[in-house]
């Protein structure tokens, strides 16, 4: 029987869980809303962003998605609001806003 992380939760019975805790599908952590942890929120000013992408590798949460060489926004479902991206940005394109709300 194929079991997906999507279907496994704290109410799953032992018959409904994978043997030995193995997971045989990639990157299931994407299902987790770590964005709810945020106490501060990065706000991207698209007009100021030069798409230098310097902020991208510094993000511990892979939450600054890049498409065709351009920063396309912030993944707020996962961003924990550490503020590193705002600190790294040389153009003032990312600022931190108080609170977790987008």
């Amino acid at each position: 029987m194929k079991l997906s992380a999507r279907d496994i939760n704290e109410n799953s019975t032992w018959q409904e869980m994978t043997l030995g805790g193995e997971i045989y599908e990639p990157a299931t952590s994407k299902l987790v809303n770590t964005g709810a942890w945020r106490t501060n929120t990065p706000v991207l000013d698209v007009a100021k962003c030069r798409h230098c992408l310097m902020c991208v590798p510094y993000c511990p949460d892979s939450s600054l998605p890049v498409l065709y060489g351009r920063l396309v926004g912030v993944d707020y479902y996962h961003c924990k609001g550490c503020g590193i991206c705002a600190e790294v940005c040389s153009f003032g394109a990312i600022t931190m806003k108080e609170g977790g709300e987008v």
Binding site: E10, E22, Y24, E25
Partner: peptide, 10 residues
């Protein structure tokens, strides 16, 4: 498909 083994179980 990949396999992840040895999780932290709550």
């Amino acid at each position: 498909n990949p396999l992840a083994i040895g999780p932290y179980d709550l």
